[in-house]
C-alpha cells in the first residue's frame, strides 16, 4: 500500500506517494527528479548516494523514503545555488578532487557532514570520515586536501 509522505529536499517540500520499500535514493532521483545523487552499489558500500537527513549523513540507497517523512533532506544540488559554488565544491575543483565525478556528489555531502560536526578536523579524521565514500579515480589525495583547505580557510576567517 503506497504511503503519503512529505520530503523537504533542499528546502523545497515535496508531497509524495511512495511504495513503503522505495529507497530515499530512488525517490529523490525518480519522483523528485534530482539526479545528482548517484547509485554505485545499492547496498551502502560506496557512498555515491549519500545525502543529509536532518543533518546526518545517510546512504540513501539503503534508507527507506518513508523513514524520511517530514525530514529535511539535503543533496549535492542543495550545497549551493549552482551558480556560486560552495567552498567545498570550489576546493574539490581546484585541488584535483574531481576526476570522473561519480563519487563527487556523495563525497561532497560526506565532507559537509564532517565539517558541520567537526570544523577543524585532522587529516586522519578527514580520511576516516570519507572512508565510506569510495573513489577509484583520485586516490583521495585531492579530496583530502580540498576538505583540509576549506577547514583551514574557515578557521582563518574565525
Amino acid at each position: 500500500m503506497a504511503v503519503d509522505i512529505t520530503l523537504s529536499v533542499n528546502g523545497v517540500p515535496y508531497p509524495l506517494t511512495v511504495d513503503p520499500h522505495a529507497s530515499l535514493l530512488h525517490t529523490v532521483r525518480g519522483d523528485v527528479g534530482l539526479t545528482g545523487s548517484k547509485e554505485g552499489c545499492d547496498d551502502s558500500e560506496c557512498g555515491a548516494c549519500m545525502m543529509l537527513v536532518d543533518g546526518r549523513p545517510v546512504n540513501s540507497c539503503s534508507y527507506l523514503a518513508v523513514q524520511a517523512d517530514g525530514s529535511d533532506v539535503t543533496t549535492v544540488e542543495g550545497l549551493s545555488d549552482g551558480e556560486t559554488l560552495a567552498p567545498l565544491q570550489e576546493a574539490f575543483l581546484t585541488r584535483g578532487g574531481v576526476q570522473c565525478g561519480f563519487c563527487t556528489p556523495g563525497m561532497l555531502v560526506s565532507a559537509t557532514a564532517l565539517l558541520d560536526r567537526s570544523p577543524n578536523p585532522s587529516e586522519d579524521e578527514i580520511r576516516t570520515a570519507v572512508s565510506g565514500n569510495l573513489c577509484r579515480c583520485t586516490g583521495y589525495d585531492g579530496i583530502v586536501k580540498a576538505i583540509a583547505a576549506v577547514a583551514a580557510e574557515r578557521a582563518a576567517q574565525g
Binding site: P20, H21, S23, D42, D43, S44, N59, C61, S62, Y63, L64, V66, Q67
Partner: peptide, 27 residues
C-alpha cells in the same frame, strides 16, 4: 521494527532476506 535500517534494508539489498512486507518505523 526498523530503526536505522542499516542491517534490515542492506540485508535485503544483498539478497539475504527480502524486506518484510509490514514495517514499523521506531526511529
Amino acid at each position: 521494527p526498523i530503526a536505522g535500517g542499516t542491517d534490515l534494508v542492506v540485508g535485503a539489498r544483498h539478497g539475504k532476506a527480502p524486506l518484510p512486507a509490514a514495517l514499523v518505523g521506531i526511529h
